[in-house]
Design a protein around this nucleic acid. Structure first.
Lengths: 155, 155
DNA sequence: ACTTTTATTAGGAATTATTATTAATAATAT
DNA sequence: ATATTATTAATAATAATTCCTAATAAAAGT
């Protein structure tokens, strides 16, 4: 393994290296299934659903189970190797239509409102949205651990 | 119905009026069920799930069905009388961890990436998030109709 | 007020998404 | 190579959401 070889590593290989590193750091085994599932998401640019990932991985590993896909996607998210788009599982509704955003606690699932403070203007939209279509709603979601869960975890 | 009476209308009454107006505009009937479901969400500040709304509405209407709640929540969303927090139904994953946001088409469900343009800084976080907890992820979602669906709809 | 028309609903069945169970398998340490 | 033990496949179970159909009730017409 010489210096040159290292330099020409592809991006995917870098990410795979990070994947193995993270697994070892968390004491998780580097299984064939985990590797394939990670690659399937890392190589896709279409924000696949669990089912799509399952289908993609099945092409290389015909016996992989859907349960493994779900379990692995959750653990990859835990390791910050991929992210989940939107909120998980069940839908939640908000009758307050004033512009505001949400803090979602990833531990307890609670959703908190964040209203703009006096003098705080509206969120600036990213420039890249131009030409994509008509924006009807802006939804800023901050995810993390809420105060309450932080305290309970300490105890 | 005198002028004074109109002035002291509560906020909920205003919203109910808008609700009826919107229903009529869309040719939807103003049923008891729709009214109750709308009120349940409008009065709640806890971002209730469909199940929670169902439970709340059942107290006033013991025979309302869960299907009606789902159907009505969807139509209220359609009429912009409430909003859905996060993405609907199934989870989607993203292996690209560089900061970017998503344009979600509410017609076809497609998710598009929006990367920051050269020189564009990171999103400013709303000030109100201070003290809520530890933010681990920022998720800006723009919802609307994508170019492709706009064109198909014209045809 | 009474009928008619037709959207809407209740109730339950069906479907879809996700998670749990368990015996068998395979990754790592020894 | 062997032992240890996390992980997996397969399937069952659960949770979330949607579909189906006859009965009901809102709105419009009389």
């Amino acid at each position: 393994m010489n210096q040159h070889k290292t330099e020409i590593k592809t991006e995917l290989q870098n990410r795979l290296a990070r994947f193995e590193e993270q697994c070892r750091a968390k004491g998780l085994r580097v299984t064939q299934q985990r590797r394939e599932i990670f690659c399937a998401v890392a190589q896709s640019c279409e924000h696949p659903s669990a089912e799509k990932v399952f289908q993609a991985v099945r092409r290389a590993m015909p016996n992989v189970s859907l349960d493994t896909v779900y379990r692995t996607l959750a653990s990859l998210e835990e390791m910050d190797l991929l992210m989940r788009v939107g909120l998980s599982s069940k839908a939640r509704f908000d009758g307050d239509l004033r512009p505001h955003c949400h803090f979602v606690c990833t531990r307890c699932g609670e959703v908190y409102d964040i209203f703009p403070q006096p003098g705080e203007g509206p969120l600036p939209l990213p420039a890249g949205v131009q030409g994509m279509g008509e924006v009807k709603q802006v939804n800023l979601q901050l995810r993390g651990i809420c105060k309450k869960c932080q305290q309970e975890h300490k105890a």
